[in-house]
Amino acid sequence: MTDVTMTVNGKPVTRSVRGNTLMTEFLREELRLTGTHVGCDTSQCGACVIHVNGADVKACTMFAAEAEGAEVTTIEGMANADGSLNVIQQAFQDHHGLQCGFCTPGMVMTAAALLRDNPRPTEHEIRDYLEGNICRCTGYHNIVKAIMAASGQDVSAIAAE
């Protein structure tokens, strides 16, 4: 066991972890932050995307011990300070960007990473950036719409056909 200290959603945490503890296990089982979902556990689906030092990563494919000293943000850290949905989350609700909701935490985290680097992405850039996030319900159109809307862009032309 190794002690690991990191900041999760702004709060410092220290826990003793095994060498093989994945970030998904650390967040879900140690910290009880179950918003980070485990879909495939093979880094294909993106339901477990979190931010580590500002970069979007798949929590199922990173060990907790490697997050020593890191700033970690999960879906639980995304709402506004007053608890209301942030602009991306609200756009997902407004544009029906989710159905079952299982992929949604990862979609929101990936969208947030995209919009930070590219505040007004094209539809193509959004679809390209979502390559590592799989949704089995929506067919993606409304997710793309939500991200366009969250970036302040017109969504009327998206997937109109």
């Binding site: 979007d56 798949k58 494919t61 990173m62 990936t110 995209l114 950036y129 390559e131």
Partner: peptide, 9 residues
């Protein structure tokens, strides 16, 4: 290579 999250690791 891979996808954006994979490229970050």
């Amino acid at each position: 290579i891979g996808d954006p999250a994979v490229r970050n690791r």
